[in-house]
Simulated scan of single mutants.
Amino acid sequence: MTIRVGDKVPAATFKVKTADGIKDITSDTLFSGKKVVLFGVPGAFTPTCSLNHLPGYLENHEAILAKGVDQIAVVSVNDPHVMHAWAQSTGGEGKILYLSDGNGTFTKAAGLDIDLSAAALGTRSKRYSAIIEDGVVKALNIEEAPGQAVTSGAAELLTQL
Score class of each variant (00 low, 15 high):
residue 65 L to P: 13
residue 105 T to H: 11
residue 140 L to E: 01
residue 90 T to A: 11
residue 107 T to K: 05
residue 119 A to K: 15
residue 47 P to Y: 08
residue 34 K to P: 12
residue 156 E to L: 03
residue 145 A to M: 06
residue 70 D to W: 10
residue 97 L to W: 00
residue 129 S to N: 09
residue 140 L to D: 04
residue 98 Y to W: 13
residue 141 N to F: 12
residue 51 L to M: 15
residue 53 H to G: 10
residue 83 M to H: 03
residue 27 S to V: 13
residue 130 A to P: 09
residue 124 R to M: 06
residue 131 I to H: 03
residue 99 L to H: 03
residue 92 G to K: 07
residue 160 Q to V: 06
residue 161 L to G: 10
residue 26 T to M: 10
residue 136 V to R: 04
residue 110 A to Y: 01
residue 153 G to C: 07
residue 116 L to K: 14
residue 66 A to G: 10
residue 120 A to H: 11
residue 40 G to N: 07
residue 123 T to L: 12
residue 161 L to N: 11
residue 115 D to P: 09
residue 39 F to A: 00
residue 25 I to Y: 03
residue 111 G to R: 05
residue 55 P to W: 06
residue 141 N to A: 12
residue 43 G to M: 09
residue 138 K to G: 08
residue 132 I to S: 08
residue 46 T to M: 07
residue 25 I to W: 05
residue 71 Q to R: 08
residue 36 V to K: 01
residue 147 G to W: 01
residue 100 S to C: 08
residue 115 D to Q: 08
residue 109 A to N: 11
residue 67 K to I: 01
residue 32 S to Q: 15
residue 114 I to W: 00
residue 120 A to G: 06
residue 118 A to W: 00
residue 121 L to V: 11
residue 66 A to K: 13
residue 28 D to P: 02
residue 97 L to C: 03
residue 155 A to F: 01
residue 24 D to W: 06
residue 115 D to K: 04
residue 155 A to S: 14
residue 127 R to T: 08
residue 85 A to E: 13
residue 109 A to M: 10
residue 92 G to N: 04
residue 23 K to F: 00
residue 115 D to I: 03
residue 25 I to P: 02
residue 51 L to S: 14
residue 30 L to M: 15
residue 146 P to D: 00
residue 54 L to H: 08
residue 57 Y to L: 06
residue 49 C to Y: 05
residue 64 I to Q: 05
residue 160 Q to K: 15
residue 104 G to W: 03
residue 28 D to M: 04
residue 132 I to E: 07
residue 159 T to S: 13
residue 116 L to Y: 09
residue 68 G to H: 12
residue 40 G to D: 05
residue 37 V to E: 04
residue 126 K to N: 05
residue 113 D to T: 04
residue 65 L to K: 15
residue 102 G to I: 01
residue 48 T to G: 10
residue 114 I to T: 06
residue 140 L to M: 07
residue 99 L to R: 00
residue 44 A to N: 10
residue 119 A to Q: 15
residue 132 I to M: 11
residue 149 A to P: 08
residue 72 I to E: 04
residue 75 V to F: 01
residue 38 L to Y: 02
residue 24 D to F: 10
residue 37 V to M: 04
residue 85 A to F: 03
residue 22 I to S: 07
residue 61 H to F: 14
residue 130 A to T: 09
residue 71 Q to N: 08
residue 94 G to R: 06
residue 108 K to Q: 14
residue 36 V to Q: 01
residue 87 A to W: 07
residue 77 V to N: 00
residue 141 N to Q: 14
residue 34 K to Q: 14
residue 51 L to G: 13
residue 35 K to G: 08
residue 94 G to T: 11
residue 73 A to V: 11
residue 147 G to E: 09
residue 136 V to A: 00
residue 122 G to M: 10
residue 86 W to C: 09
residue 116 L to G: 11
residue 26 T to Q: 12
residue 152 S to H: 03
residue 149 A to F: 02
residue 24 D to V: 06
residue 154 A to S: 15
residue 125 S to A: 15
residue 150 V to N: 12
residue 68 G to A: 14
residue 150 V to G: 05
residue 133 E to D: 13
residue 80 P to G: 05
residue 109 A to I: 09
residue 136 V to C: 00
residue 104 G to R: 05
residue 106 F to Y: 09
residue 37 V to R: 01
residue 83 M to G: 04
residue 127 R to S: 09
residue 36 V to M: 04
residue 82 V to Y: 00
residue 144 E to K: 13
